[in-house]
């Protein structure tokens, strides 16, 4: 499968970053190479085996439903330059 310039463009948009044409070019080249390399592994019939998505096989854990302290409001807002006394601000969103 070939990768196109526009696919790189879409991926950049989906990652919400802007790339220069040179960066797109380079990325296209790298992505293509990796895909080719991966294709060489095809013959080993990988489709039949389970994917590993986790760092180990220990099962997940559960927590009791007990309330713990939330952050004080001042700390919640401390790292934002765009906030009033309670809320974060974002550019106006008009839905519908």
């Amino acid at each position: 499968m070939k990768i196109s310039n526009s696919e790189i463009g879409n991926a950049a948009w989906d990652a919400r970053v802007k790339l220069t044409p040179g960066e797109v070019e380079h990325l296209l080249d790298c992505s293509q190479k990796i895909l080719q390399e991966l294709n060489l592994v095809q013959k080993d019939n990988l489709d039949s085996i389970k994917a590993t998505f986790f760092g180990h096989e220990q099962p997940g854990s559960l927590r009791e439903d007990i309330i713990t302290d939330s952050l004080p409001l001042a700390k919640v807002l401390a790292n934002s330059l765009y906030a009033d006394e309670f809320c974060f601000h974002v550019p106006k969103i008009i839905e519908e």
Partner: peptide
């Protein structure tokens, strides 16, 4: 930025199988 874009590419609907899932296999 390039790394994140690459990440978006390999996990996209179109390439999930041939890049991401294959790598996890």
């Amino acid at each position: 930025k390039q790394f994140l874009t690459f990440g978006a590419l390999v996990s996209s609907g179109k390439h999930y199988e041939d890049y991401f899932l294959k790598s996890q296999r």
